[in-house]
Amino acid sequence: MLVNPDFVDEVKRSEEFNASACMNCGVCTAVCPMGIELLPRKLFRYVLLGIKDRVLENVETIYSCLLCRMCEANCPAKVRIAENVRTLRYYINKKVFKL
C-alpha cells in the first residue's frame, strides 16, 4: 500500500485531527459498545500514514460510530477520538459525498 504524504495534510487542514499520541494499546477497541474493530486505532493509523484507500474502503464503518466517547474517556494517551472521527467525517462529506 502506497503512503500518500499529502493525505494527512488534507485531513489535518482544520488542525483538529490529532492522533499522533496514540500508542496502539487497543483500549478503545475493547470498550467500543458497537464492537467496531477498525475504530479508532486502525483507522487513525491509516490516516497518519496516508493510506487513503483503506480509509475510503471503510466509509460506512466511520459513520456507524455513535460518538459516545466511551473510548475517549478510557484512552490513556488522551487522544481526542470523537473529534478526530468528526474531522474525518467532515473530510469525507466534502471529498467523497461532495456535500
Binding site: M1, L2, V3, N24, K42, R45, Y46, L49, I51
Partner: peptide, 13 residues
C-alpha cells in the same frame, strides 16, 4: 512491513 499497522506492507516514496 509495519507491525503497528497490523503487519501490512507499506510503501513510502
Amino acid at each position: 512491513k509495519d507491525l503497528l499497522t497490523f503487519g501490512e506492507e507499506v510503501e513510502i516514496k
